[in-house]
Design a binder for these strands. Structure first.
Length: 462
RNA sequence: GACCCCUUCGUCUAGCGGUUAGGACACAUCCCUUUCACGGAUGCGACACGGGUUCGAGUCCCGUAGGGGUCGCCA
């Protein structure tokens, strides 16, 4: 455990935010989730802002698991948090599965450290024990000002609240105490956290002061609200990071969107890559007003990122979703071309299978509406048969070759190519929407194209 | 109830005393087009309210209202 503790130098209430610029040789920030549930979008953005700050200044991003509440902790939740952070690309420099020299990084393994700090507090005469064994911290009951990078100086009058419990009768410790101890022990210089903690920050400063420690610089970031305007909860769409993974969001897109909730980079535009976001990040530009979550805009960002993926990269990202829909990739080139052909038509990867399934097999369902249209005009079977004939004669089965064959048979039938397209689209895909007809025909191949037309003809006659 | 934070188009926001209050998402219309989309163009649409300060206020101050948060032997 660290024994060299910083000297008491109360900065809160003395300095203004403008004076806070980098008085530290090394910036150390942390994300300290409690493994009691899935990774929440608000928590993810808190982690994101901390990560950005560390990366911007070459500092350290520490991950600390606050698992002091044994009854509510779960292994699944711990894993979900790590997975979610990794998915977003928020790598930590110290913490679980990574290590570091300020560990352990699980509060459940730091009891001896807390005991030592408690002894120190007791020695300073700042605690007292209740009949049942619970230990309380004696508030100083002085005016305390929190110097906050986002909210400015926030003054709190001497409190009238009862003294704060810091240790339960069973010997386990309470959040406020372990949070403060660990931030000191781990050398955290800046605490960037949700604004829901602002009202309690004076308690933390009181604790730092009683311990003779310098409190970190605080930056309380605005909350992410649901569309209704209240705090995001489990029930709200988009509250769980896992839901983005499942829906087929790209990490870069979610990363980008989350940045813009409560922060506006000083640059033109909204779509920025990570490196740019890192270089632009400044806590001073973080807003103090809460922001509502907008799934439509988040989805728009995802569509933007999806569209700039190369076919191979898109296929790689789409793979789990294709597999989930039972589509087996046997031809890499064809599969890549298939997903690329609908890149502009979807905004989430989970939508992909329904747009491309007919590339992967011929037993697709034909929409009722499509069949009705095929049957609507008596000349349709003849037209389709004619096109099939033209297709049979194509020696170079390229997209251009297919296109030429369609135009030729349209001319011979005395109709516009546009009249043939819907018929072919229905026959080849069973759907009324999708990529260009020539693209589909080319990719599924000549033989399959002819079989599909045969099948459509049969369905129409049935 | 006490305390803290906040308040510009429906949403995210620009604005840092003088602007026709700008952009993005969404929505609407048009163009492009074999479909669906993409893209392009146009449109719709906001300074919560009331007092000050000032030659002049979205910008500064006070109040009101509204929203959010915190007051645990949860984190």
């Amino acid at each position: 455990m660290q024994t060299a503790l910083p000297a008491l130098r109360p900065i809160h209430g003395r300095l203004r935010p403008a004076d806070f610029h980098h008085p530290f040789p090394m910036i150390r920030v942390r994300f300290a989730p409690s493994p009691t549930g899935y990774l929440h979008v608000g928590g993810a953005r808190t982690a994101l802002f901390n990560w950005l700050y560390a990366r911007r200044h070459g500092g350290k991003f520490v991950l600390r698991i606050e698992d002091t509440d044994e009854a509510r902790n779960t292994e699944a939740a711990r894993q979900a948090i790590l997975d979610g952070l990794r998915w977003l690309g928020l790598d930590w420099d110290e913490g679980p599965e990574v290590g570091g020299d300020r560990g352990p990084y699980f509060q459940s393994q730091r009891k001896d450290i807390y005991d030592a700090y408690l002894a120190r507090l007791e020695a300073a005469g700042c605690t007292y024990t209740e009949e049942n064994g619970a230990v309380r911290f004696k508030f100083s009951r002085t005016a305390i000002t929190v110097g906050d990078l986002v909210c400015g100086d926030v003054a709190f009058a001497p409190t009238e609240e009862p003294d704060m419990t810091i240790r339960r009768p069973d010997g386990s410790y309470i959040f406020h105490f372990v949070n403060v101890v660990d931030d000191a022990e781990m050398g955290i210089t800046h605490v960037i956290r949700g604004e829901d903690h602002l009202s309690n920050t004076w308690k933390h400063i009181d604790l730092f002061n009683a311990l003779g420690l310098q409190a970190p610089v605080y930056a309380h970031i605005p909350l992410i609200l649901n569309p209704g305007g209240s705090k995001m909860s489990k029930r709200d769409e988009g509250s769980s990071i896992q839901s983005y993974i499942d829906a087929g969001f790209l990490p870069d897109a979610v990363f980008n969107y989350l940045c813009l909730l409560g922060w506006t980079p000083r640059a033109e535009g909204e779509k920025f890559d990570r490196a740019t976001l890192v270089s632009l990040f400044d806590p001073a530009d973080i807003h103090s007003a809460n922001a509502r979550f907008d799934m439509q805009k988040c989805t728009w960002f995802n569509a933007q990122y999806l569209r700039e993926l190369e076919p191979a990269a898109l296929l790689a990202a789409a793979r789990p979703f294709l597999a989930g829909a039972g589509l087996e990739v046997t031809d890499e080139i064809m599969a890549a071309a298939a997903v690329a052909s609908v890149r502009e038509k979807v905004s989430r990867l989970a939508e992909l299978p329904e747009w491309v399934h007919y590339f992967f097999g011929e037993d697709f369902a034909i929409e009722d509406e499509a069949l009705a249209k095929l049957r609507a005009k008596p000349e349709n079977p003849a037209l389709l048969t004619a096109v099939a004939g033209a297709f049979r004669g194509v020696s170079e089965w390229t997209e251009a070759g297919v296109q030429a064959a369609i135009e030729t048979s349209a001319a011979q039938a005395g109709v516009k190519p546009g009249a043939l397209m819907p018929l072919l689209r229905f026959a080849l895909s069973g759907q009324s929407r999708g990529p260009g007809v020539a693209t589909i025909a080319h990719r599924v191949g000549q033989a399959s194209t002819l079989r599909r037309i045969e099948r459509a003809l049969a369905e129409m006659a049935a």
